[in-house]
Amino acid sequence: MTLLEVSSLNAGYGKSPILFDLSLEVSKESISAILGPNGSGKSTLLKSIFGLTTIYNGSINFNGNDITGMKPYEIARLGMAYLPQVENTYLNLNVRENLLMAGYILSKEETNARMQEVLDFLPVLKGFLEKKVLTLSGGERQMAIMAMALMRRPALMLFDEPSASLASKVADKIFEKIKELNRDFGMTIVIVEQDTRRALEISDESYLLVSGKVNFHGKSKELAENAELGRLFLGLRSHIQDKRVSV
């Protein structure tokens, strides 16, 4: 069953178009990876789905609702969570306060119950609930971000580069948690990643973005195991000059 469908999307920032005729489908309870070189529009794609960019043309459908042109907080209320790379926490508030804000629209009892759930899922957070986010390490902060998103029990999580600037072991832990979310809680997840190895390992489907267009799409397992596809993938063709650009 398709949870998210993007059809022929043309989007960008103000008058600068970034995505061209982009289509993708995300099945329920799957993990999808969006891969590609720098500047290919991966983050823009996530932002467009969440309503943070200018949409020129095309449509986005989430769980049966046409969310094209909707405001981010309306989309959030429909059950989507967006975890951006930057500006994703209140640095001067502590973890508990951040969680409280993430679940702002919940009632008091719901908030306490959800917080308990979230802390059960990410018990490591209990160790630094009262610490200001500014003082947390990269890995701790990513955990906090995940926790904040989970307060609202979203149906879909859009994760922008979860492993960015994290040490390898720490990134492993994060990805473990992502897998757990999907496997044990049936969460549908879309990840944008630079770390292609990890992304292919964890995801069911992959999309390759080059210069704002989907260059390739298929099962991650196939992509990982297929040497020919790997060469194609590693020796990307840039549509502008048809030169091989290595990732």
Binding site: E87, N88, M101
Partner: peptide, 22 residues
């Protein structure tokens, strides 16, 4: 208070607070 913490949140990051439904 929740409202007070929301004030601090809004002071720090207006757009993020809006997205969270504050």
């Amino acid at each position: 208070t929740k409202f007070g913490i929301a004030m601090r949140a809004v002071m720090e990051n207006y757009s993020m607070a809006g997205v969270q439904g504050i």
